[in-house]
Design a protein around this nucleic acid. Structure first.
Lengths: 329, 329
DNA sequence: ATTAACAATCGAACCGGTTCGATGAAAAGC
DNA sequence: GCTTTTCATCGAACCGGTTCGATTGTTAAT
């Protein structure tokens, strides 16, 4: 608990005014070279470190970005978090990572952040409507991940789904199921862009539609939905995400099925886990790293308009072929 | 950018002094019931939120704990992070999660945190020596995860290793390899407590010692070490951690080996991934959730002695049997 | 020589809260 | 009825920086 050295201590030690010390350290105004040297020396000797809170008070910048996630069980999220962190540290900023189990917790977090604890907030909970969020946060810039029109970030979910469907058809599959998710882009299952594309493809190839709605996208849900899936007689499935796909694999294994012979599975997101499963999971890649970086850059531009605003871009999803799809003859 | 409402605005709006408002809101001094009501009403109407920085300045508390990790690739770490977050939010605190790829970055982070940005720091990088850490952080409490004598948290690594070894022997294995890690408890491979116990057990059962040192404990390292492992002719391995075990499984699969027939694998940590692999990984459970919570509680007690100091405890590691060990006849 | 321009530094105000001694009025004690 | 206590509220100081107008000494321009 040794009292911390303040800027006044440094000034007193040298017999000068604290504003001079401040200017020397921040370069706000020119200070004679000699004095500047002395000041830096004194700073080192005394071990002075500018007080965080005092600096925040003046600059209205904490250098902290709040990030709200629902958990880290989905490895696609861990990929995002790492990318957020990397993009932020490039700008000398830190991340306050908050896990909100419920929407209520999410709102609480937003309120806390918006008191000036964070310079901006990224929300990844799809259920927190953006306009609600805006109301709460007031003056603090806040983006909902993949829901911000302003971010000029368009994701072409159709491309990956199309590729995946055609790949399955090429492998002889006709009964292809899809797990549709309301968390993608909008809040109704029906408007899941993957589902929309799936319907087009099913019509095109004259396949039946087999739609299974997915909620959380957890492994446990995948396990549970697997039985529903088997009941449909589908030979292949476009899983809602990779965790769900893993759950399906797990349940298949429990039932003594052999993959990919008895069931072909295509995941979504291409989370790191997709490469680690056996068989390795064929998945539709959603390039989280790019999306996360873009989101951070858009947000930081709003915090500090001196930083560049990244150009609007459309990101395609893309099929990554591994070993979880088999030929149906 | 609408100017934020300050406590002075609230006071002016009611024609009273700001200290009165402060007292009413914090309960520091008694305020007449009627006025108190009016104040709360005004606060709601105007949408006043106490400014974070100003409050920090007075209280010297940010309510933030810095957490330094090397990444989220190891799912045991994600488990820890979730547990840290949960333990902190119970005390209304938040986590600044920082990813340090190098020790230099780790030191930088410590310096930033110790300016008052965080009330305390948890470091999970084993290579940052605790005394170095203490020097940097000065007045900010800082613990290195699983390295803090003061935390009175002892981990019985031997128990799990013993169980695992005996389980392998019971399954007929005689050539049992171990991947020893310097990151466990101390900085030399030789003092890895798992290795120490392994040696005892090997001597006891008259088995050869087959020791393979592990560094990062990544999947990639597991893949690389797998070939070394096969060269030893071992029929079973105690992997350094679960990621490494996964790497070994992956490489085995590539080489057309069948698990667990051709190789028995026991992981360490029992990361969430252990349950997701096929075959599911038998692993030595290191109860990260308990350890993380204990660490947070010890640390919070140091930040605020009014909070209870958890009693010293010894945590045992324990074998969790799944499907990755086979019988050797 | 006088003034203008400039560089280096000082000192006071400010950011938005909290804290604490002072103040005034009402309630209690004698 | 006058003093003492209690209660509610005020106002100023403070936390540790930053900012900006004012002040000095020095050099350049007229």
């Amino acid at each position: 608990m040794g009292k911390n050295i303040t800027i006044s201590d440094v000034a007193r030690h040298l017999g000068i005014s604290k504003s001079t010390v401040s200017h020397a350290l921040s370069g706000t105004r020119p200070i004679s070279e000699e004095l500047c040297r002395k000041i830096h020396q004194a700073v080192n000797e005394l071990g002075y470190k500018p007080n965080f809170a005092a600096q925040v008070m003046n600059t209205n910048r904490t250098g902290l970005i709040g990030i709200i996630i629902s958990g880290l069980a989905n490895t696609h999220t861990t990929e995002l978090v790492e990318a957020f962190s990397a993009a932020l540290s490039k700008r000398q900023m830190q991340m306050i990572l908050a896990i909100a189990a419920t929407q209520i917790e999410g709102v609480e977090l937003l309120q806390r952040f918006s008191r000036g604890m964070a310079d901006a907030v990224i929300n990844t909970l799809p259920d927190l409507h953006e306009n609600v969020v805006q109301n709460i946060t007031g003056s603090v810039p806040c983006l909902t991940y993949l829901r911000h029109e302003e971010a000029k970030l368009e994701i072409d979910f159709a491309s990956g789904t199309r590729e995946a469907f055609e790949y399955l058809v090429a492998n002889g599959h006709r009964r292809i199921a899809i797990m549709a998710s309301r968390t993608r882009c909008d809040l109704s299952v029906a408007s899941d862009p993957c589902l929309v594309e799936y319907r087009k493809m099913a019509a095109l190839h004259g396949c039946d539609e087999i739609v299974i709605p997915m909620k959380d996208g957890t492994i446990a849900e995948g396990v549970a939905l697997a039985d529903k899936l088997f009941a449909t007689g589908a030979t292949a499935v476009l899983a809602g995400n990779d965790m769900c796909a893993l759950g399906i694999m797990q349940r298949s294994f429990e039932l003594g099925k052999c993959l990919p012979r008895d069931l072909s599975i295509i995941g979504h997101d291409d989370a790191p886990t997709a490469q680690m499963s056996l068989p390795r999971l064929t998945s539709i890649r959603l390039p989280g790293e790019i999306l996360a970086r873009h989101t951070v850059e858009v947000l930081l531009h709003r915090v500090n308009p001196a930083l560049p605003l990244p150009r609007a871009r459309t990101v395609a999803t893309k099929l990554i072929v591994r070993d979880s799809v088999g030929k149906k003859n």
